[in-house]
């Protein structure tokens, strides 16, 4: 129930607060930073939910749940980093970018520079663990599964 309410609130929020703001990747115009950041929060919430659900289950240490749990964890971290990076970009001035150089003279530029590098590590790790989970399943079910009985026979 709580989840449904939250989900409703997120969607309503996206619709109610359209604004002409910019993000790291220039989420401007009709999209806007706010909706993108809310989507990040929604993403973070859903993968946190996944992480908690798996952590509470008995299978958390077994494949592929172990790998899925790790993927969820890295997705959470990635969301946090990109969320901060998007905001920090808003506090930077365009003049700080000079060709292929960046003038680092405030905290926002440091956070942006660091975040936009580190986020790649976590998104790659998250995707890699997700792929690993699928590989684990494939290892177990590599051969075509011999289903016990044809449904029609039951």
């Amino acid at each position: 129930m709580l989840f449904r309410i939250l989900r409703f609130v997120f969607f309503v929020s996206i619709c109610l607060f359209p604004s002409n703001v910019l993000a790291v990747q220039e989420h401007g115009g009709a999209e806007g930073l706010l909706s993108h950041e809310l989507a990040h929060l929604f993403f973070a919430f859903s993968v946190t939910y996944l992480f908690v659900k798996i952590s509470l289950s008995k299978e958390k240490k077994k494949s592929p749940y172990r790998e899925l749990r790790m993927a969820s964890l890295f997705f959470i971290i990635w969301n946090v980093i990109t969320f901060v990076t998007h905001i920090s970009r808003e506090y930077m001035d365009k003049s700080q970018f000079q060709g292929l150089y960046l003038r680092v003279d405030n905290m926002a530029s440091i956070l942006w520079y660091t975040g936009s590098i580190v986020e790649h590590i976590f998104i790659v790790l998250a995707c890699w663990y997700f792929l690993k989970a699928l590989y684990r399943i494939k290892d177990v079910t590599g051969e075509p599964v011999d289903l016990p009985v044809n449904r029609k026979e039951l």
């Binding site: 220039e26 989420h27 401007g28 990040h40 993403f43």
Partner: peptide, 12 residues
Amino acid sequence: SPLSGGLNTLTF
């Protein structure tokens, strides 16, 4: 940019 960002948000 808005197209890329919008797609990005939707897939999130």
